[in-house]
Design a protein around this nucleic acid. Structure first.
Lengths: 206, 206
DNA sequence: CCGACTCTTGGCAGAGTGTCAACAGATGAA
DNA sequence: TTCATCTGTTGACACTCTGCCAAGAGTCGG
């Protein structure tokens, strides 16, 4: 049980140690909430003194931010090597790949989404904002609308809003089981196309 | 400055005292995060001993739950006295009223949205879930689809997902200013109609 | 005027967090 | 090999926050 610390003091490369602690933190924060999990828990699980966690990450909050940041990264593979056909088909493939990723890393992804926004936290908001920005780029790329300038700001805002629906719909699928994967595929693809091709042109540009 | 406690001990009706503390808690939790705000802060602001907060609400967590519950109430006025015309028009009015409410209580509403989900918290999830359920009923009522039985579960799931987009889009409007109120009206009305009339029939019922 | 009720308080114990000087493992020079 | 230096690592201290409880004090009925 406590064989985890046979040698009291094993010295490691800073990068390795940091990665090890971060891994434990990711797992524990994923399972429990922010207040539930203590630095002591993380340190114990990593077989390390509590102060070392502070040494590497500064504080609990910063460690948490680091975990969130790593979890919210949108895999680039989702929008890579798309066939140069229609936006419809490209978006369909994109959505499908994304659902594949989510299904594979189910627990981890749900944790990241569940983590989202602990109170009104400007730093967390910043992280989410950057993640959404990346996701928006992926969508626009898939829809072959990278060089649209007309109402670009509103376009991106709409896609960010849509990505919020995407998260909620994914929760419906994975947690509540009210929607199937194919349902999600239909819903997400159609709504994003509807937004891009029908709703967006209907907005008066000011 | 500290004239707030001229008489050291003023006795109040339990209901009044409880309401007073809850009001302060709502304000402080709205401004800062869950961990940032301490019971001491709330007690001090309310001009009361810290232990009294525990006496009335049991613990910090339960007080927080109470605040969230009270904030997420969807005003019933949004879907009241709608004209018996088309679903399009009824939903349009519904959305408009909703935007009116949000605009009027801007700060308060933003706080409520920012509050949601403190880590993976089943009780908070439960509260949000009930709130979403009520909101869904309002939408279905406005769309005159209260008695639809075909794929009812999926229909409700889609509307819940849509309400998530509604929140995100509202943030874009109020916080970032990337969308105008009329933009929101167009986006929300069209997408919800698209979901109900086009996407929903396209889902294979299993 | 006084006793009972209960609203209200100060203080205690336990837990979590941040910080720092000091210890110890690793590396290079003599 | 032996020693000095560097730095990863630790235990301990001080502080804050939370939950709890007995005791104090305001209010009402007899």
């Amino acid at each position: 049980m406590d064989v985890q610390r046979q040698d009291r003091r094993r010295r490691m490369e800073p990068d390795a140690r940091r990665a090890e602690i971060l891994g434990v933190a990711r797992r524990l924060f994923g399972a429990g909430g922010y207040t539930t999990v203590s630095i002591s828990d993380i340190a114990a699980e990593a077989g390390v003194a509590r102060a070392l966690v502070n040494h590497y990450f500064g504080g609990k909050r910063q460690l948490y931010l680091e975990v969130v940041r790593q979890m919210m990264v949108v895999p680039a593979s989702v929008s890579e090597r798309l066939p140069p056909t229609t936006p419809e088909e490209r978006l369909s493939i994109c959505v499908d790949r994304w659902l594949e990723v989510v299904e594979r890393n189910r627990d981890m992804w749900l944790s990241a989404i569940g983590l989202e926004s602990l109170g009104n936290d400007p730093e967390i908001d910043q992280i989410m904002l950057e993640a959404d920005e990346v996701a928006t780029d992926r969508i626009l790329e898939a829809a072959m609308m990278t060089d649209v300038t007309e109402g670009r700001t509103k376009l991106r805002a709409m896609i960010r809003a849509h990505s919020s629906m995407l998260k909620a719909a994914s929760r419906e699928w994975l947690v509540r089981g009210t929607l199937s994967r194919s349902d999600l595929h239909v819903i997400l693809t159609r709504t994003v196309l509807h937004l891009l091709h029908t709703v967006h042109p209907a907005l008066r540009d000011d």
